[in-house]
Design a protein around this nucleic acid. Sequence first.
DNA 1: ATTATCTATAGATCTATAGATAATGC
DNA 2: ATTATCTATAGATCTATAGATAATGC
Lengths: 191, 191
Amino acid sequence: MGHSKAEKAKTHQRIVAKAAKRFREEGLEGIGIAELMKEAGLTVGGFYKHFNSRDALVAEAVSSAFGTWKRQVDAAESGGPPMSYAKLIDDYLNEAHRDNPGTGCAISALAEEISRSDKRTRALASEEIRNNLQLIAGLLPGKDKRAARSKAIMTYSALVGAMSLARAVSDEALSREILKTVSEFLKKSAR
Amino acid sequence: MGHSKAEKAKTHQRIVAKAAKRFREEGLEGIGIAELMKEAGLTVGGFYKHFNSRDALVAEAVSSAFGTWKRQVDAAESGGPPMSYAKLIDDYLNEAHRDNPGTGCAISALAEEISRSDKRTRALASEEIRNNLQLIAGLLPGKDKRAARSKAIMTYSALVGAMSLARAVSDEALSREILKTVSEFLKKSAR
DNA sequence: ATTATCTATAGATCTATAGATAATGC
DNA sequence: ATTATCTATAGATCTATAGATAATGC
């Protein structure tokens, strides 16, 4: 048993990180507290010393899953060339992302469940979507800010929708066709 | 108690129709058998004379929710002018559809849960998506079939993604901006 | 006689809490 | 003394089944 305050904070983050992954994989109600705690190397009884309720964990986990994109972009840029629109598209619309929702975009993994969540969680989603729209708009050339915002909204919608469709179908060829077509279409129309 | 075979068939359809609506509203696990049966004017005990399991109902209800679009298009065309690409976009990307998932597109309401469902349900989704892509492609002008298919995939992705984003955000202005921007963008680029 | 539906409930979860145990930290 | 975690369990679901009841249909 680890009991120090520092260890408790680490444990807390471990639970949140595991939940952020598993919720994206199984849905917000696809995994219970007992199993989550077990995966974090703990037992169910300790849960409520960390969170007031299951919903409190959901909110924290969703919040933690958000910002993934921005962090990835920042990390990539700090060690190399600046992010480009084409690279952003490629990083999103690929089979690895499709097959690993647990580490990917929380919006495409959870949008429908978020839309049924409480206002607090949806406010977090609004913030995330707003941030990502600005991130995309910043990668688009030209000085017309309104045009860039429109294109960013169109791009984000197409990315999220294409990923949803590609994950929903059981036909691998159709799934790949969706990813590839939308990817090429977006990159072509950005030129 | 109604007991005839004809009434049983009607009752069966009533349960499926109610489930198709409620699953789109609450998610595939958001409503239980007892409440569904109650809404259909029945009690929980009769359920298993209609379905082998809850999953069997889910598959039937999802299947029933599919094809909504095609039926609407057929109905609209039978009593008026042929459907146009612009009208299809308007019928999809509006606030009424956003606020009433229970009677709307089953893909945008359930894509994420479907992607976690069994192969049979995902095969149904593949068929639905394939059908809808053909429906959209058929509304696009020009003789280049490959270009029409690409544009149909892009359109369908943008529609589903825009609806997901518009439903996820709590900010009404942002939600409307997403619907309007994608709607205008698609219609403009189809000319 | 068969069967569509009903009431009642068994058995399996799942969230949340109670009380014990073993560390930290004053 | 405080508290982070543990084991155990209460209470609330939810799916599925058992057996009774009241219609249909031969």
